[in-house]
Design a protein around this nucleic acid. Structure first.
Lengths: 370, 370
DNA sequence: GCACTTTGGCAACAGCGTTGCTTAAGTGGA
DNA sequence: TCCACTTAAGCAACGCTGTTGCCAAAGTGC
């Protein structure tokens, strides 16, 4: 009669409750942005009483995380006081380690980048060398805001990895990273907390927090390969082994052409082959088929496309993917009302999303310890 | 700068905290089953202090939900007192409304069925008639435990529906159910809370709570059609419109044979066509391809097969699906360590899972209001 | 039989959000 | 100009949560 998943350590005591409600208020403050939000609106959004919100915001103001920001027009009584997040109270570093380059960004609490560094990087170099470069980037960026606390470092890398213990599994073509404990190593060098995740997950997180519209969505990244980042229930879905988002090697054509992975008819192979022979319409249609499958399976609200190959002709891909999804919806299948957009911004969203790995827990979102 | 998903009413006050911790303890008690669990083990499992657990369990005992159940062998000091859930303190009704039959089950808190009813049902009959039959079944079952409270009625139905407001969308072939507010109607007739969900989701919930092993998994139901129920992060993933689990009409063969849905190369069409022509190996292989796609995309731990078609030759399907997943894993793809099993038990798991829709919130699992 | 270990309850406590009330700060009609 | 009214937000008391410190209960083992 045993069986159900054991939930470890989910008990809530008073400090945990206090922290939870504070993160909730911070999340609403962040969502409100520069416009700010009143205490009563916070009360409505959290379900707490106005008095509880007053106490919580008083503590946040004491900590320098929130400030008053003027008054609302009166509606016949005392006007509401608007509160606003203080974005530059704390910062986080985001690191994108790619095969051929390193992008590092310092972002404030609102997720806005305040300093960016890019440098060439050889992922094939010894780990010590790469680590030193990464640590240098973190140090340089931290110097941009010398007197403000940096909460931690988020790192986005291409290959499979374990988000929980921060260990790389294997980065295709670079065997020296097999089982490398990147989180621990970088944490020791920088003296900061480090969080690790896949590049597609980081991009998806950035889109979930900074982008337009809420809801569940999939980020499909088409570059040298094809991968996905999934946001379900407002949080990045990683799976037990951080393996979720394996999208490129989904079989889309039974017994189709051979793929580099050894399989047949993989979306990635079909899509990139079509692209290679100049048939962008077919590439977009194939991608759309895969996207439509995903939309139906997970009942998501939108699909966001990104990556260099998409960037080369955004319109064609958006139109092609949208056409497939709409055709299926018109037949009575899933996908009605699903929007298809592009991420834009090149590779920088990945670094910013990496920083969000650190910021997410501050606002009660799942970053670490999914 | 707006954007992040607005979380409504997530604030936690003291009653909510109390309830949360109590459900946590209840969940551990249920997981322990007849073996029971000691206070200190509960403390370890929840992260609460032993004293807090003592207070919580005292309340549960006062409410008749838990009792002492002997002592553990001493380890050199006072022996631990074992606590056990009282399964027959409360009950729930599960209802499975299928196209041609109705299965109703009364389960105790441990999820064990204590009474079962089956009856023919014509889903094409007027709604009032079907409703009356359903309400009768609920009343008859409740009479089996006349002096114990029945917490509510969980209802599993085949078609698309909205889990949140309990409204059916359309049950293929039975237009009179379009937009029918089944939850409200049945709640009024029975005087009990009613929760509605898809049959595949109910089956998945039953497997998640009663089955062997935890972790994320997919339940694939192959009967007259092909559908899926997904359990991610220990909870049923429904999506915003309760549409998740649309698996049968995933495209698996680009421009393949026409499917009844109007699409081409759908898994369901390929699989059932192979089955129809007696090629069960191919049917299992096709199902395995779809399952492998899903395993990779979501990084799940196991695949559970069910439904009449699978039941006709469980071995062939398990072996076929397992072979595809293992082949992909052996190539370095996703799926290493994934187990493939059958649900067994025919259709009764669906009704039991429906009852779990009601029980899940008692144990802090998501049943209502995903 | 006694020292030791371990469990679990009792009582006092700090701190959470809530409630009841008061004060602050506006609007708008007479 | 005044005053009644409305709305926002703080103060103080309160109930209840889990926590802490302490002690009794109930075993083991030399």
């Amino acid at each position: 009669m045993n069986g159900s998943r054991t939930r470890t350590q989910a008990g809530v005591n008073l400090p945990a409750l206090r922290h939870h409600n504070a993160t909730l208020v911070l999340d609403l403050l962040r969502a409100a942005g520069a416009d700010g939000i009143s205490r009563l609106e916070l009360a409505e959004g959290t379900g707490l009483t106005p008095q509880a919100v007053s106490k919580i915001t008083a503590r946040l103001r004491e900590d320098g995380l929130a400030v008053g920001a003027g008054l609302r027009p009166s509606t016949g009584g005392k006007p509401r006081t608007v509160l606003r997040l203080v974005p530059d109270a704390q910062f986080a570093v985001g690191l994108h380690l790619d095969r051929d380059g390193l992008t590092a960004v310092l972002v404030d609490l609102a997720g806005r980048p305040v300093a960016v560094t890019t440098a060439p990087l050889d992922l094939g170099a010894p780990a010590e060398q790469v680590l030193a470069d990464a640590a240098d980037a973190v140090r340089d960026l931290s110097a941009a805001e010398p007197h403000k606390p940096v909460l931690g470092v988020g790192v986005a890398v291409p290959g499979p990895l374990d988000h929980r213990d921060g260990v790389l599994h294997r980065v295709t073509g670079f065997p020296q990273w097999d089982g490398y404990p990147l989180r621990a190593a970088l944490a020791e060098r920088t003296g900061l907390p480090v969080v690790l995740d896949k590049d597609t997950n980081a991009a998806a997180l950035a889109l979930a927090l900074g982008g337009a519209g809420g809801g569940d969505f999939a980020y499909l990244h088409l570059g040298t390969g094809l991968g996905a980042g999934l946001v379900l229930g407002g949080e990045v879905h990683r799976g037990a082994r951080t393996g979720a988002g394996e999208f490129g090697h989904q079989t889309l054509q039974l017994d189709g052409p051979l793929c580099g992975c050894g399989g047949r008819g993989c979306i990635e192979a079909l899509c990139l082959a079509a692209e290679a022979r100049g048939d962008r319409g077919e590439a977009a249609r194939v991608l759309g088929m895969g996207a439509a499958n995903l939309v139906g399976l997970l009942d998501i609200d939108r699909v966001v496309l990104g990556g260099r190959t998409v960037a080369a002709d955004e319109d064609a891909y958006v139109r092609g993917v949208r056409a497939v999804i709409e055709e299926r919806a018109a037949r009575g299948g899933a996908g009605a009302g699903v929007t298809v957009t592009v991420a834009g911004g090149g590779d920088r969203p990945v670094a910013e999303g990496a920083a969000q790995l650190v910021l997410a827990p501050v606002f009660g979102r799942v970053g670490e310890r999914g």
